[in-house]
Structure formats: structure tokens, C-alpha cells
């Protein structure tokens, strides 16, 4: 008896990994949970945000000099998303951007709340922290444009 030989199936591959942060990422996220943004000074003297145990540009260990940065910063590049995907940082249309926090030398990736007309390279933004913070990069819920 003939059947449809094209057997097709959906496969859902899902797992929640447990990621140990180590001391440096751990401190950055701990500060974030407290509503503070910190960078760490690299061996070459720049302030790296978010903080890492090393400078990804040269592999050298970062120092133990921590520096308060933000909460305001500047957009260095951006893109506007009209239809946010499920699980995006914001439900309403928003921008992804690289934001260089005041006091930092390196921009970081995050979401920026609209309105769209206010989003521009060079626009000034301010960190918006989540109401309920649990120690992850999403404790910084997004940035908003400073009018």
C-alpha cells in the first residue's frame, strides 16, 4: 500500500544551560542587580564595558580597577525593529544599538526604547533598570533616549 514517503517531523531542541560567571562577569552582574553599571580598566588603560577578565582585542588580562560608568551614554550605531520577535527585550517596536556609556571606552549591545524619531547615531540615552532584577544582563532592561 502506497503512502506518502516524505516523512517530515518537527524537532524541538531545548535546554537551559547553567553558566558559571567567574568573578569578573559575576561582579558586573552583581552591580547590575544593584542598579549600577561598572566597567573594568584594561591593561592599556581603557575602560571596558561590560566587564571581562580580559580585553578581547589583545587577550591581555584586565586590571582590578573598577570604574563606575553611565547611567547615561551615546548611541554609536543602531537599527529600528518594527516587529519585535518573541522574547525580545521590549514588546513594542524598539531599536538595537551599540551604546557607549559615559566613562566607558567601549560600546555595548542593548535595546533602546523609542520613539523611533529620537533614535539616531549620537543620540544621548539613559539606562533603564528592570523592576525585578535577578543577576543577568537583562537586569538592564533597555536604554531610553534622553529628551
Amino acid at each position: 500500500m502506497a503512502r506518502d514517503a516524505d516523512f517530515v517531523a518537527r524537532f524541538h531542541l531545548a535546554y537551559t544551560y547553567k553558566r558559571s560567571t567567574g568573578p569578573v562577569i559575576g561582579r558586573f552582574l552583581t552591580s547590575l542587580r544593584e542598579g549600577r553599571l561598572e566597567g573594568v580598566r584594561t591593561a592599556s588603560g581603557e575602560v571596558l564595558v561590560p566587564a571581562r577578565a580580559y580585553d578581547p582585542r589583545d587577550g591581555r588580562a584586565t586590571t582590578d580597577a573598577w570604574v563606575d560608568v553611565g547611567p547615561e551614554g551615546t548611541i554609536t550605531t543602531w537599527t529600528w525593529i518594527d516587529a519585535p520577535a518573541a522574547g525580545a527585550p521590549l514588546d513594542a517596536p524598539f531599536a538595537w544599538a551599540l551604546v557607549r556609556l559615559d566613562g566607558a571606552d567601549t560600546p555595548m549591545l542593548h535595546a533602546v526604547r523609542g520613539p523611533r524619531a529620537a533614535i539616531a547615531t549620537g543620540a544621548r540615552v539613559r539606562a533603564v533598570f528592570a523592576d525585578h532584577r535577578e543577576g543577568g544582563i537583562r537586569d538592564l532592561s533597555c536604554f531610553e533616549v534622553i529628551p
Binding site: 516524505d6 524537532f11 537551559t16 562577569i25 561582579r27
Partner: peptide, 29 residues
């Protein structure tokens, strides 16, 4: 104050559409 952050959860969820292909398809049939 609560404990310093030492761990974050990293959910990864991916959906695939898988075709058995003609050889395995004939076997399954």
C-alpha cells in the same frame, strides 16, 4: 545583601523541520 552573582541561566530553544529523506523514508514506510 544577597549573594554575589555566580551563575546565569542560558536557555537555548531551537526548532527544526526534519525530512527523513528517500532512503530512510522507504524504510519507515
Amino acid at each position: 545583601m544577597s549573594e554575589p552573582v555566580q551563575r546565569v541561566l542560558g536557555p537555548v530553544a531551537l526548532d527544526y523541520t526534519v525530512h527523513a529523506g528517500s532512503v530512510t523514508g522507504a524504510f519507515l514506510e
